[in-house]
């Protein structure tokens, strides 16, 4: 989620953020392909600036079960990143990763949790490092936290804990495809005050 801060973002700025999202997600997709050792295709991500309630509606519903990885970003443009997989995609990933370990595809086990956390870690890590390379900013992610529960509970708690309760959030929405199977992921970036401007400034866009 990127907060609007005090400025109205120009469409140019939003375009730049969409492009940042595209590059970040491309990098994340190739990491996922390497990790899962399969070919991964990616749909063009969409970027939108939305209030909390609308985000929940877009992803599914308050009670939809999701896996969520939560990380803080430290450095030049501090903030919080979230990666959310819907329930079906979560089990799909686990199945293709852990097939040989006899992991259940209906229940979250400690092994499954650990695997999904690592996937989220890799995805967000490669997303953030792509942005860092692009902008020349120093960005570091912290150890991930994890939750597997209702979307409303997970998302509201993330926003509250990060202190984003007033402002719109930037959602970069992505779909990965493995063969014909879709893996639906939603990536959120919540930028601390000043971070978004620093990000755009590093890309040569004045706000």
């Amino acid at each position: 989620m990127i907060s609007l801060e005090d400025t109205e973002f120009s469409s140019q700025a939003l375009d730049a953020l969409r492009e940042v999202g595209n590059i970040g997600m491309g990098n994340a997709a190739s990491s996922l392909a390497q990790l899962m050792n399969v070919r991964i295709d990616m749909a063009v991500p969409t970027a939108s600036l939305l209030p909390f309630e609308e985000i929940v509606e877009m992803i599914g519903g308050m009670e939809e079960v999701v896996a969520c990885v939560y990380m803080k970003v430290l450095g030049d443009a501090p903030g919080t990143v979230l990666y959310i997989f819907d329930e079906e995609s979560t089990y799909r990933i686990l199945h293709s990763l852990l097939e040989t370990c006899g992991v259940s595809s209906q229940m979250m086990t400690p092994l499954g949790e650990s695997a999904i956390k690592e996937i989220g870690n890799v995805l967000t890590g490669s997303f953030i490092s792509a942005i860092a390379t692009l902008t020349g900013l120093s960005l570091i992610t912290t150890v991930p936290l994890f939750s597997f529960d209702m979307l409303g509970a997970v998302l509201s708690t993330s926003l509250i804990e990060s202190g984003y309760t007033e402002k719109d959030v930037l959602m970069i929405d992505t779909s990965f495809f493995q063969g014909r199977q879709e893996i639906k992921g939603h990536f959120f970036l919540f930028a601390d005050p000043g971070s978004l401007n620093r990000l755009l400034g590093a890309l040569g866009i004045s706000v």
Partner: peptide
Amino acid sequence: AQMFSGNGDSSALNI
């Protein structure tokens, strides 16, 4: 509830 866990840090995200 405390929705998030990880890193053995029980104080994390506990509003």
